[in-house]
């Protein structure tokens, strides 16, 4: 089946991100396809380029990036939810006159319309939240 994940929990604050990543790995291991992970609400913090968790804890940001590298999963971040929480890619940082950026590829800032499209085109959209 073709799956997508909607993640709305902040990393390290709620179980949501850890569960979502494990679910993603489990369904890929079963031979399903995971098209997209969409990050919304506090889930957008999963795209923070500068996240530096202790070495003996799972690195969630790298975990999502690995899914993209190994399985081509697209990592889409709601731009409106991201910008107001300080998550900007290089283009948005320059547009808003900020000296640094906090989101980079393979995460992409995109609109909520993508969530609706992905939700309607996949067989299953599974939501993880606090």
């Amino acid at each position: 089946m073709r799956y997508a994940i909607l993640l709305m929990g902040a990393p390290y604050s709620d179980q949501a991100s850890h569960s979502a990543l494990r679910f993603a790995r489990a369904l890929l291991a079963r031979g399903h396809r995971l098209e997209t992970v969409f990050f919304y609400h506090d889930g957008v913090y999963n795209a923070a380029r500068l996240a530096a968790p202790p070495q003996d804890e799972p690195h969630l940001v790298d975990g999502w990036a690995a899914l993209h590298a190994e399985h081509g999963v697209t990592l889409q971040v709601c731009i409106a939810a991201a910008l107001r929480r300080g998550l900007l890619d290089e283009r948005e940082a320059s547009r808003h006159g900020k000296s640094g950026h906090s989101v980079e590829a393979p995460f992409e800032l995109t609109g909520l319309g993508q969530l609706v499209d992905v939700g309607l085109s996949c067989d299953r959209l599974v939501t993880f939240g606090p």
């Binding site: 409106a80 609109g111 909520l112 319309g113 969530l115 609706v116 309607l120």
Partner: peptide, 11 residues
């Protein structure tokens, strides 16, 4: 916001 965007996209 999600509802408005869905409607704006013709859903």
């Amino acid at each position: 916001d999600a509802a408005l965007v869905g409607a704006a996209f013709g859903r």
